[in-house]
Structures are given as structure tokens and as C-alpha cells.
Design a protein around this nucleic acid. Structure first.
Lengths: 152, 152
DNA sequence: AGGGAATAGTTTAACTTTCAACCATGTTCG
DNA sequence: CGAACATGGTTGAAAGTTAAACTATTCCCT
């Protein structure tokens, strides 16, 4: 149990700024998506990842990885999305354990509508308020964080 | 309904990097705090804010604001923390509607222990993997985000 | 071939968060 | 004064998330 290396004043300030800012940002984006399109962020994320996949469909495990969700959570969320008609699940013929999750036309239409508002919110509260140089730095910073998290 | 101003490739990349990285980071920090100290991030946050307050106590509303939580959520979380003996609530004599939330000695001790590990995690997965210049930029960026969020 | 381990996904129960309703006190203003 | 409204906080039910157990299938190895 050695003495911890505390953050210096600057690191402390930057870390805290990130925490406070990102919590608020998440809140705003969350509320926007929910009130205007009835979607939670995790639901939105699932639709996005599906929309980017070939044939707009993915295996559950891959979708879980892309959307950074646990399998359990994905199962629950997909059940909800399926009951709303935005997504459809089918058995995979080649691997009988597997399940494909497909974005329905309604799901795609909902996503398109939501994305329009979403991008505006992201601009208004994130992209447009950050200096372009700083934004690039944010990109590099979190890419590094992700990399570190991945290979741990 | 005008055409939305979509993000350009660079903005898209940076935004996505932030989303993916921060989700993973949150996950890691969350798990660390929970498994090693039995605290959720929101509980930890409450203890931190209390520890910084004069007399280590705050009115519920102020605490809610500092910790970016809804009043309802704070009530529930404080009830849990209180039953763990980390926090104590007392009526405010001057405003009979009010309630003071105070960090107990056990609460402070728990926080101190948790903070030691927490700072290590924050270093390992955030501060130490980010270039110092980029870290400063992250600080500026999210300060701007917070400011924008506040006055909206 | 076939036993054991790994993988895919779902389910159940426990827990946490949100939402709306609620009670009590304080404030404002005709 | 006192009626209406605002503020501080809690509560209970509904919704969402997590953790662990479970089923089914596939992979690996001798």
C-alpha cells in the first residue's frame, strides 16, 4: 500500500471538467432523444450500429460489442425494440445458437428522424462549442483511452 | 425542417471516439469502485461532494446540484448510504422543510480508501494515457460544454 | 466417436433509476 | 389575513440495468 500519486491541480481540474461536462452532456442528449423520439441512448446506439452493418443486420454478440453493452442488457433492449417494431430477431441457420438482429424499415425510418435532431444537439452542445484544435485533441485523447481499455 | 448540418468526417471521428472511449472508461471506473469498495459512482460522487463542503454537510438540494442528480435519485441513494452508515440526515432548524446531509466519520474513512484506488484507476486509464497538451484541451473542451449546458 | 470446455443467447431476481404524485413549509401579493 | 403558488424533500410504482443461473449448440482434443 504505497502512497497514491494524487493528481496535480491541473490534472484534477481537467478530469473534473470532463466528468461534470460529460454528465451534463449525456443528460441533455438523453432527454432530447427520449422526449422527441421515444428512444433511450442505448436504443439509439443499437439502431445506429445496425444501420451501419451490411444488410442492416448483426449477430447479437457483435451488436453487443459494437454498442458496448452486455449481452444481457442487449437481450432486454432488443426485446423492447422488437415489440416497438424497430428491430427483428431471427435464428441463424448456420449456427443454431445464434440470432440475427435486423433493423426493420420502420426502425430505419425512426433512426433517420432521430439522427437529424441528434446531430443538431451534438453540434449545439458539443462540436460547435469546442475549438476545432481542442476537438481533435479530444478525439486523440479518447482514442488513447479506448485503446488502453481494450488491451487491459 | 431544413437539411441538418451533418458532421464532417473528422468531427464524426472525434465525436465517436469520445463516445466509445468514455463509455468504456465509465464502465471500468464503475466496476473498480463497486468491486473494491462497494460503491457506485453516484454514491462515490455524493461522498466526494460532501467531503468538500464546509462541515462536510450540505442541504439535499445543493448536494443534488453538485452531484448532478435528481432530488428523487438523491433521496433514494442517501437512504442507501445512510443505512450503510456513511451518511446521516438531520432536519434543518431554520427551514423546517430542509434536510442536512452529513458525511459520517465512517463515510469519510470509506471515501479516503476508495479515493486512493480511484485515483490510480483514473491515472491508469485516463490521465497517464493522454498527452498532457491533449489533456488540457479536454479540460477546456468540457468546460465549454458545461458552460453551454448551464446557460441553456 | 464422445466427454469436457467454450460460446451464444435468454431468463430470472435483485437492484437502481425515473416519473409522477404527494406532503409540508415558506413566500407573495391582492 | 389568507389564497395561490413556489420550494424542499420523500415516496411508491414502473421501467431499465445488472448479475448469476440456465439451455442449447459448437468446438476441441484424445
Amino acid at each position: 500500500m504505497s502512497e497514491p500519486r494524487w493528481l496535480d491541480a491541473t490534472q484534477q481540474r481537467d478530469w473534473r471538467a470532463y466528468i461534470d461536462g460529460s454528465v451534463r452532456l449525456t443528460e441533455i442528449i438523453d432527454r432530447d432523444l427520449k422526449t422527441r423520439h421515444g428512444l433511450s441512448v442505448s436504443e439509439y446506439e443499437i439502431l445506429v450500429r445496425l444501420s451501419e452493418a451490411p444488410g442492416r443486420r448483426l449477430r447479437m454478440a457483435e451488436l453487443a460489442a459494437n454498442a458496448s453493452q452486455s449481452r444481457s442488457r442487449l437481450s432486454h433492449t432488443c426485446a423492447r425494440l422488437e415489440s416497438k417494431g424497430l428491430v427483428q430477431r431471427d435464428n441463424c441457420p448456420s449456427d443454431k445458437r445464434g440470432v440475427f438482429c435486423t433493423l426493420t424499415p420502420e426502425g430505419f425510418a425512426t433512426l433517420e428522424r432521430a439522427a437529424r435532431d441528434h446531430v443538431e444537439t451534438v453540434r449545439e452542445f458539443f462540436v460547435d462549442v469546442i475549438d476545432p484544435g481542442d476537438l481533435a485533441a479530444v478525439g486523440r485523447a479518447f482514442a488513447a483511452v479506448l485503446k488502453r481499455a481494450e488491451d487491459s
